[in-house]
């Protein structure tokens, strides 16, 4: 398997939902990766659509950057609906 690359598998569990990461597997090519994903990750009706991508093409953010990346979003309360006070009689908005 030295030459069978690792693939990440993403599964859409039902129509209307996002593809979600399910796991990984080895396959010689994309076709085989999709078939293997079907055989390995949808044995119990877990999916209706499969994406595969070779793991080496995934670029990830660095955990060290976590603070700089994600904390600043913490204090932007004005992005959330509850930030805005509205009169009681307004039932739905």
């Amino acid at each position: 398997m030295k030459n069978w690359p690792l693939w990440e598998v993403f599964i859409r569990s039902k129509q209307g939902l996002n593809h979600i990461h399910a796991g990984s597997l080895h396959a010689a090519d994309a076709e085989m990766a999709i078939e293997n994903a079907r055989d390995v990750y949808t044995r119990r009706n877990e999916g209706i659509s499969i994406w595969v991508v070779e793991s080496k093409y995934i670029h990830a953010s660095n955990p060290e950057d976590q603070g700089a990346f994600f904390d600043p979003a913490n204090n932007k309360v004005y992005r959330h609906p509850t930030f805005y006070e509205l009169p009681e009689q307004l039932k739905h908005m």
């Binding site: 398997m1 069978w4 597997l25 080895h26 396959a27 085989m32 078939e35 293997n36 055989d39 390995v40 044995r43």
Partner: peptide
Amino acid sequence: PVLEQDIAMTN
């Protein structure tokens, strides 16, 4: 010959 195909054949 490889785990993934073992699973495929059983399917």
